[in-house]
């Protein structure tokens, strides 16, 4: 299976370990991820400012993938949502496709509406399949308890994701965690938003939202948080100290990207998965394995 990997803005600069581990694990599982250097902004951050621009930015990326005859595999949930939305709209709405093609034409590009978009984790869940994932596990992580944060755009709005998982009772991440042998930790605020999208508008509220979840996850006795989106990683990783500092709480909740968890279970070394490059170094966790 071969797909174009859409890294987005944040991953290739700030979450290299996510990219590294995803590519590494994908290779092992027979998923070839192709880089397309010309990819630009997915469009998500400007959707609320200028709808048309966002759509065109997304369409440009779809066109780039179509030129190479590839579907898109994403790492960031926000990119997933806007690329999926636009790819579906363009397939369903001919008038919009025509108008978009006209604008793309000015850039010397064309798009005919063929590209499908899927989050990396959804590819693992649906296309590689839980069974194959389970089979790839060589070192079951039964000493780990991991709390998954689904985030928002991986599952919602659900109508663009073919009901592959239910946003009100999500299971896919927990099942993928369980497949590695780790305990999937349930916690009260599992479905809640990280608050990342309003960090620049109202930092206090955004951090309160993240804090509520950090508290819950800690109380639930998890060793780590399983993340699948670089935006959420900003909230729980980069800002974890800040959130704690405000209240004299010291969280020590390593964040792991799902491919890192899976990679560990597959027996890949933590160096190859960039674990120590994560925003919170998972020292205690790694000690548990060795």
């Amino acid at each position: 299976m071969k797909m174009a990997v859409f890294l987005g803005c944040t991953v290739p600069v700030r979450n290299l370990s996510y990219e590294l581990s995803a590519k590494r694990v994908a290779g092992e599982l027979g998923l070839e991820l192709v880089d397309i250097p010309e990819f630009g902004c997915c469009g998500y951050p400007v959707k609320s400012v200028h709808h048309e621009t966002a759509y065109l930015l997304a369409a440009r990326n779809l066109a780039l993938a179509e030129e190479r005859g590839l579907d898109i595999c994403t790492l960031c949930s926000a990119c997933t949502s806007v690329l999926t939305e636009v790819s579906r709209e363009l397939t369903a709405n001919e008038a919009l496709l025509d108008a978009t093609c006209k604008s793309l034409g000015m850039l010397g590009r064309r798009y005919s509406g063929k590209v499908k978009v899927k989050h990396f984790v959804r590819v693992l869940y649906e296309d590689i399949g839980l069974e194959a994932v389970e089979k790839a596990v060589k070192r079951p992580l039964d000493m780990f308890s991991i709390a998954s944060h689904y985030g928002c755009h991986y599952l919602k709005p659900s109508e663009i994701y073919d009901r592959f998982d239910h946003p009100e009772v999500p299971q896919s991440l927990d099942r993928l965690v369980a497949a590695t042998g780790a305990r999937a930790v349930d916690y009260r605020t599992k479905k809640d938003c990280c608050g990342g999208a309003i960090l620049g508008v109202d930092e206090e509220t955004a951090l309160s939202m993240a804090r509520a979840k950090l508290d819950d996850i800690s109380n639930a006795g998890a060793d780590a948080i399983n993340l699948i989106c670089p935006f959420c990683s900003v909230m729980y990783g980069a800002n974890q100290r800040k959130i704690g500092a405000g209240r004299d709480v010291k969280y020590d909740l390593p964040i792991l990207y799902y491919p890192q968890i899976l990679g560990l279970a597959m027996g890949i070394s933590h160096e190859e998965l960039g674990l120590m490059q994560n925003p919170i170094r998972p020292r205690a966790l790694l000690a548990k394995i060795s």
Partner: peptide
């Protein structure tokens, strides 16, 4: 260093899009 591909600096088509849409 990490064995990942280089990424081109800048992406002029994005600015062009801003021009086309009027943003």
């Amino acid at each position: 260093d990490w064995g990942l591909t280089e990424i081109p600096q800048g992406c002029p088509e994005v600015a062009e899009i801003y021009g086309i849409t009027g943003l």
